[in-house]
Design a protein around this nucleic acid. Sequence first.
DNA 1: GCCACTGTTAGCAT
DNA 2: CATGCTAACAGTGG
Length: 273
Amino acid sequence: MPELPEVETIVRCLRRRLVGLEVRAVRLDFPPIVRNRGTSYLQKFAGRRVLGLRRRGKMILLDFSGGLTMIFHLRMTGQLLFGPAAGPGDKHTHLRISFRTGESELRFRDVRKFGFIRGVRTDRAERAPEVRGLGPEPLSLDLPAFLRRLKGRRGRLKSLLLNQKIIAGIGNIYADEILFAAGIDPRVEISRLGSRRMERLHSAVQAVLDEAVSFKGTTVRDFRDGDGLEGLFQSRLRVYGRQGEPCPRCGALIKRIRISGRSSHFCPRCQRR
DNA sequence: GCCACTGTTAGCAT
DNA sequence: CATGCTAACAGTGG
């Protein structure tokens, strides 16, 4: 669930809470979420200060003094929460980091356990296996660079938007919203897109993601920011989850179909092949 | 109880 | 290499 706007929201929230804090202890309750070969790697973070937080696609990079970085991916149900340490916590909290000042701790929760953590040297963070293959950031991608990324690709447009190697950070919700904003059918073959529609697509990517970030992301079910608060964008969704409701533009009923295994929502009248 | 469904992506097949 | 399908897990709703 956390796509670019949700991850950006978490990063901005936690930056205010964590920067400057010194780690007291790292406790790991479910070792398989750590991708390092030895899970004891995370113990190296004790005694270090948080220098900053970054986002890359849907990944969160937490930089510590001494040149170490903790990389998080929340996948579908992961949460990164900062708050008062509460006893043993619930069974879905897999990692907790306590700090020398204050009673609050940072917790990594993940009901489905798809998310992961990897500790790396900061100077090698970009080369971590999960970060290395990511495409560029959509919000700093100008039109010519965007067109070059799409050139020579095949398949359905929606699958391309979801491909993190082409552009990093777009997931199922925003792919649908972007295609609605651009007025393009999600099933369209990429090769059939003319330059007019490529331009519309490019501006829709930026407009939708920008707006979703300003509304602090979308909470369908699990998403929370670093303080545990829900996003505000769910009421602004135009098509995602709105099958059977009238299109906000033309009134036709929103359809829901399956495209390469993912549910896809679109307006059959506004969005053209 | 059982089955279908869920926002991601690694790994495998084609 | 590029693209497409599925499993990994746990919970929810019909």
